[in-house]
Simulated scan of single mutants.
Amino acid sequence: MKTKIAVTYENGEVFQHFGHTKEFKFYTVEDKKIVDSEIVPTMGSGHSMLADFLLLNGVTVLICGGIGGGAKAALAQKGIELRGGVSGNADEKAQAYVDGTLEYNAAVECTHHHDHDHENCSEHDHHCGGHCH
C-alpha cells in the first residue's frame, strides 16, 4: 500500500507553524520504505486552504510542529492523520514515522490561532502573538 506523508518544511527542519508554512516536503512510502520525496511550495495557501491542498496532493499523514484547532478540525474532516508537536530534521522524522518510532503530541494545539480573518485582529480582545500582520 502506498502512503504519502507531508511534513511542514523549512531549511531541512520541521516548520513549527502549520498555517504559515511556505512549503511541504512530501514523502511517498511503499512497503514501509520511503521511495520518493519532493519539496512543494504552498503558493501562499492559508490555514483554511492547506487541508485541501494536502488532500489534492494525495497526502494521508501530516507531520508538523504547532497547529491551531481550526486546522486540526479541517484535517480530521479530510481524513488526514495528524502527527503534531514534532521538531527536528524533516527527513529523520518522516523515517521515524515509517519505522513507527515518531514521538509526537496528539494534544498539540496552538492557543494563539483562531478561525477568522487576521486582518481584523484589532477588533478582537486577545493577543495574536505577532502572527496577524
Rank of each mutant, 00 (worst) to 15 (best):
H126D: 13
T42N: 00
F24T: 11
D36L: 10
L56C: 11
D31A: 08
I63K: 10
N89Y: 03
H113K: 07
H133C: 06
G88W: 04
C132Y: 07
C121M: 07
P41G: 05
K33F: 06
I39S: 04
V61N: 04
S122W: 13
A71H: 05
L75A: 04
V7Q: 03
T3E: 14
D117F: 12
K93E: 10
I67Q: 07
V108G: 08
I39Y: 04
T21P: 04
E119A: 15
T42R: 09
T21F: 04
K25N: 00
C128Q: 09
I5W: 05
E123K: 15
N105T: 08
T111M: 12
I5G: 09
D31F: 05
S48L: 14
H127Q: 00
V35R: 00
I80L: 08
H17D: 11
M43E: 14
G44S: 03
A107F: 15
H112V: 14
S45I: 10
G19R: 00
V98W: 13
K25R: 05
S87W: 14
E23H: 11
G58P: 03
V35F: 02
M43A: 15
G46C: 07
T28I: 06
E23R: 07
L50Y: 12
T60A: 12
L82H: 03
H112N: 10
K4N: 06
S122V: 02
Y9I: 10
A94D: 01
T60C: 05
H118A: 12
T60V: 01
L55E: 08
G44R: 03
S48T: 15
H20C: 10
K22W: 03
S87T: 15
N57E: 04
K72C: 12
T42G: 04
I80R: 01
H114K: 11
D115Y: 14
V98E: 07
C128A: 11
H118V: 07
E109K: 10
H114E: 04
A71V: 01
R83F: 10
H131I: 14
D31P: 12
A94K: 02
N120G: 13
N120T: 13
K4M: 00
H131V: 13
G85D: 01
E38D: 08
L62D: 08
